[in-house]
Design a protein around this nucleic acid. Structure first.
Lengths: 112, 112
DNA sequence: CGGGATGTGCCGGTCGGCGATATATGTAGA
DNA sequence: TCTACATATATCGCCGACCGGCACATCCCG
């Protein structure tokens, strides 16, 4: 799973949302760093639907505009939780290793 | 940056390593889940060299076999630290949102 | 009436990961 | 000895995900 997809699942984790709202939510989550394009969005949405990680929660018309809302499935919830845990583990390991090498930039002599 | 690349940088974070050792190290870091192929490895290594995130640390012959070691550059260290922090933030946000929706599976009435 | 925000959707290009394949040496066992 | 496996590096082509660009439609504001 790649980052845009992960951000998408995260944006759906607390409540169902429709496409356009997801773009804004992803931007908010990533502190404005990730501007999701509609090409990425709908492609990813189709993929996630097919994988059963999300489902269509509602299809309504608001102010004359069609709006389709998506929600996480239980499988999606599980996948997101697993992914989050894995990423945290990698991040922790990366930081641990970095601190080791920073503390000892190079070894010059034995036992020293 | 994708996960294999992140794992590669992580594997280099505490000490320089050569290609084959990186495959094994990545496998160890990911608890055996990620089996890196040489196609992925050398492609990623070339990319990272070009981006200046890693550098060739040594080229030696051990037991008749050529061996090329790679090391993180300062830029690579910075990139890895930034990436780790970002991933941790996303993971935390994902887990926070999941716990919110699990605590309140659905809202049936107002103010209730 | 024009422009910007809201809203969904497709298409083609690009890039990274992956499987397959090739080459070469050292080591262990039948 | 011959065979198989671990060590070690490297290339190629395919595929899937992401991305920029585009199209289309409605609503609101000036």
């Amino acid at each position: 799973m790649q980052e845009p997809t992960l951000l998408l699942l995260t944006a759906l984790a607390d409540a169902p949302r429709h496409g356009y709202a997801l773009i804004q939510e992803v931007s908010a989550i990533s502190d404005g760093r990730v501007k999701m394009r509609t090409g990425t969005l709908y492609g990813a949405l189709d993929r996630l639907l097919q994988q059963g990680l999300i489902e269509v929660a509602a299809e309504e018309v608001v102010d004359g505009r069609a709006r389709r809302s998506y929600a996480l499935t239980d499988a999606g919830r599980g996948a997101l939780a697993a992914e989050a845990e894995r990423l945290r583990a990698v991040a922790t390991e990366a930081e641990r290793r970095l601190s080791v090498s920073v503390a000892r930039p190079r070894v010059r002599g034995a036992f020293a």
